[in-house]
Structure formats: structure tokens, C-alpha cells
Write a protein that binds this DNA or RNA. Sequence first.
DNA 1: ATATGTGCAAATGCTTTGCAACGCC
DNA 2: GGCGTTGCAAAGCATTTGCACATAT
Lengths: 136, 136
Amino acid sequence: MQRTTRQRTALLDALERQDDFRSAQQIHEQLRADGETVGLATVYRNLQSLAQSGGVDVLVADDGESLYRQCADSGHHHHLVCRECGRTVEFLAPELEAAMTAIAADHGFTDLDHTLEVFGLCPEHGGASPEAGRSR
Amino acid sequence: MQRTTRQRTALLDALERQDDFRSAQQIHEQLRADGETVGLATVYRNLQSLAQSGGVDVLVADDGESLYRQCADSGHHHHLVCRECGRTVEFLAPELEAAMTAIAADHGFTDLDHTLEVFGLCPEHGGASPEAGRSR
DNA sequence: ATATGTGCAAATGCTTTGCAACGCC
DNA sequence: GGCGTTGCAAAGCATTTGCACATAT
């Protein structure tokens, strides 16, 4: 129930080569630039199924746009993202998980899920330049 | 630069009476139900300015929809939100802040900022309810 | 009086979907 | 050959915006 099509292969390939979080549309452009002919709807459909199967991580930007990235760690983890260049560092934080779980339990909440993303300026972009504007 | 209009007053009133995170559209419906005549665009515009001035907290749901709520704590805090009804619990987590800061520092990131929201099912909706089948 | 706020409807922008053609298995 | 996949364009949604009118101050 998951065929190996030229399009899906191209998408996976593009994801593999890309280390930053990118929108479906950006990925689509990338594919076009690489000479691949893939419909935008197909990109969306495949990203969606990949996200569901855990093949890619999804990050919902403040403006509601979804960003995708193939992460090294296939398990649960979080991201430290440079708001200037998109550079991403994955990290685990067991203590955070535990604390959040405890708080939720305190209030009787179940079926938990959470979003935790840290934004900042990476070493490359945090140095000299003061007042770096808030890009998304 | 900020006039006291019937619409804005009604909106603030509705927010005051509402303890859960609600979408702009839900708030608009609420106002209509209360017999107020307020345009949807006006609700959006006012919520936007309120969010900017810190009058309300905004959180972006997984589906990209923005949810608004007037919070008790005007400072930095996080939310434990029921996916089903929007019921919200505010909480502080100094240890989390510290841990995140440490991790970011480890990677040389500066000018930090982060988003942390916990979603789940509140006691009312987590039980043996047959309706509870959707854990995104 | 006049700058702001409002309403409506049209416009945006991202994402999804209907449906016929297409191509792995 | 059959059924998952794809493409395209149309449809959906939440949100924004242009513009004429209304209104707080």
C-alpha cells in the first residue's frame, strides 16, 4: 500500500539533501529546480503521509504554515532553530518530558502531546549583529 | 489611538467571561449569540491588536488556527490545553526554562525564545468517552 | 471636525479534494 | 489488470484587506 513512484523517490531524495525546515511549497520549488516534475498536490500528499508515519518532522510556524524536515533521530525530540538561517539542532530533554507529564497528571489530563521548539540565533548569526530583526 | 467602541467593549467582555482558548470565529459566534452585532473582520482586527499589546495570549493550534484567551498571569507562562474543549490551565516551569537555556547555550545559540504548549484531554473528555478517538 | 473603527465583500495564501489519466506491483 | 498515485484545477478555510460609511473624542 505504498508504491515506489518517481515522485515519492524524488521527494525523499530532496528531503535527504535538505537539513533545514522547509515549507511544502519550498520543497516543491526545489524539486522543480532539480528538474523533477512533481505536482504540488503530490508533494503535500506525500509529506502528509510521511509526517504521519514519522518519516519527517513537522513544525507549524507562527503564521500557520507547516514546515517539514527529515530528522536524524526518529524518536521523540525537540528543535533548537536559528531564526536567521533555519539551522537546526535536535535535542532530547527527558527532564522536561517528566516535568510536563507531572503537571498534566496533576490536572487530570490524559492522552498528552506537546510542542516545544526553541528559537534563537546560532553562533554564525548571533555574534556582532545586535538587534536582529524577528524574521518569522 | 484606541477608541472605546461598542464592539471592542463587547469583545473584551466576552473574553473576560471566557476561560478557554477560543478561535476568532468561535468568539465571533459567541458575540452574535449574546445579541451583539460585530463583524467578523472587526473581531479579527481587535484580537490582533490585543495580542500585540499583550492583552490576550495567542496560541497556534496544530491545524494552524489561532486561538485566543485572556490569561490571569500577564507574565511568561505556558498552557495545558484540552484538545476537545479548550479548557486551559496555566503553569510556570522554571526548571524547563533553565534546561532549555542550558541546552541552547551548549550550542552557542543566543537571543532565545521558545514555545511550549501541552495538549491533552481534560478529565471531562479523557474518560471512556466514545467520542475521544482522535489523538492527532 | 476628523482621525479611527467598522462592515462587507473581495482577495490572499496554504492546503485539500474530486476526478480522470497514469503506472507500479 | 487492478488499485494506489498523480495532476490539475476547483474548492475550502482561516485570515487579511480595500473602501465607503459610521462614530468616538
